[in-house]
Design a protein around this nucleic acid. Structure first.
Lengths: 192, 192
DNA sequence: GACTCTCTACCTATCAATAGGTAGATGAAC
DNA sequence: GTTCATCTACCTATTGATAGGTAGAGAGTC
C-alpha cells in the first residue's frame, strides 16, 4: 500500500518530528525505520545520506514557509493581521503539539555543528523569514498602522526573536500556553 | 602539572563549548579527550557517565547564574539597570564569542530528548531565571520605574524570550551584532 | 497472452567507524 | 601502603552506509 511519494514523505515527516525533539544528532535512520516500518537500508534508497535527508527536509520546509507567507498576504491585507495570523499559526501548532517548534529554529541553535549543506539552507530560511517580517513592518508603517520605534528590520528581528524565544520558553517550562502569553504581549504592542 | 580540579574543570569547560555548539548528542567523550589531552577512559574517572557530566555542568551553570543574579543586585539598585546589565553580560559573551549561547537555552531546545536527570536541572534553571526576572519587574513596578502593560511574570517571560531568541537570531544570521540590535529595542521599551 | 527488460522499493548481510563504557595496570605523590 | 589520575586493552551497542539481491509493476515487442 505504500507508494513512492508516501514512503519518502513518511520518512520526512518522521525525521522532522525527531529533529524538532532532539536535534540533528538526536535521531538515526534506525529510529525512522522503526516508525515508518521499513528497514534502515531502505531509507538510503530514498535519501542516500543523512545530510541529503535533512537538507531535503529543510528545503521542503522553506518552500512551505514561502507558501505560508503568500497565504498570509492573501487572507489578510492588514500587515498587523498578517503578523497576528502568523503567530496564531504557531500558537495552534504548539498548543496542539502538532509541530511544537520551528524546524529551522531548532537546527539554528546547533548551527555551528551542522553539516554545511544543511547550515546554508537554515540560514536562508532565516533570511526569508526576516525579509518577510521586515516587509510587513514596512507596509504597516507606510499605511500608518504601525508606529515604529526602530527601523523595520530591527522590529522584524525583535518580533522573530520573541516568537522563537517564546517557543523555547514554552518547551523549557513544559507549558504550551506560555507561548500565547508571550506573544499576546508582543501583538498588543503592535496595536498601540 | 594537572591536578584533579583542573582536569575536571577542563572537561567541563570543553563540554560546555561543545554542547553550546552542537547540543547534547553533538559531542562525545572522544571529542573532549582530544581537546583536553587525555584518553576517553580517563574522563570516566571524573564523570562515570555522560549524564553525570552534563548534569554536573548544568548544576554548576545554575550556581554561577544565581551568583550572577546576586552580583547584578549588588552592583545596581535600579531594576532597569540590573536588567540592562544582564543583557550587557550576554552581549559581551556573544560579541567576543566567549560564550555565544546560553547552555540551558541550548539544552532546552532539545529538552524532549534529554535524559531526565539533565532535563530536570534545565527546567529548574528556567524557573530560577524567570523568578529573578519577574522579581526585577515587580521591584521596578513598585518603585514606579516600570509601567507594566501585563503582569510582571508575563513581562519577565517576554523579556527572557526576546533575549534567548536574540541569541538564536545572532547565530542563525551569523551576526553577533544582531543580539545587540534586538536587545537595544527591548531595553528601550523599559525606559518608556 | 507471453516474454523481456527496466524501474522502483524494498530486503539481508555486512562493514568501518564511533559511541559510552569497564577492568585492571601503572606511576606519581603523600 | 594508599590514593589519585592516568593509561592500555577491551567490550557491547549503535551509527551511517555499502553491496548485492528479490519481487512486483509496467511498458514494449512479438
Amino acid at each position: 500500500m505504500s507508494n513512492s511519494s508516501s514512503t519518502a514523505d513518511d520518512i520526512l515527516v518522521c525525521a522532522r518530528a525527531l529533529i524538532t525533539a532532539g536535534g540533528y544528532n538526536g535521531f538515526s535512520y534506525a529510529d525512522i525505520a522503526e516508525v515508518v516500518g521499513i528497514r534502515k537500508a531502505s531509507i538510503h534508497h530514498h535519501f542516500p545520506s543523512k545530510v541529503d535527508l535533512v537538507r531535503t527536509l529543510v528545503l521542503r520546509y522553506r518552500e512551505d514557509a514561502k507558501a505560508g507567507f503568500a497565504a498570509l498576504e492573501r487572507t489578510a491585507s492588514d500587515p498587523r493581521d498578517q503578523l497576528a495570523n502568523y503567530v496564531s499559526y504557531w500558537e495552534k501548532c504548539i498548543t496542539d503539539a502538532s509541530d511544537p517548534f520551528c524546524l529551522c529554529a531548532l537546527l539554528a541553535s546547533e548551527l555551528p555543528a551542522l553539516p554545511p549543506a544543511v547550515a546554508v539552507e537554515v540560514r536562508l530560511h532565516f533570511e526569508t523569514l526576516s525579509a518577510w517580517l521586515t516587509s510587513a513592518f514596512e507596509r504597516g508603517a507606510a499605511l500608518g498602522i504601525f508606529r515604529l520605534s526602530t527601523a523595520p528590520r530591527a522590529e522584524a528581528e525583535s518580533f522573530m526573536a520573541t516568537v522563537h524565544g517564546g517557543m523555547l520558553s514554552a518547551r523549557a517550562h513544559g507549558d504550551p500556553k506560555l507561548f500565547g502569553i508571550i506573544t499576546t504581549a508582543l501583538l498588543n504592542r503592535l496595536s498601540n
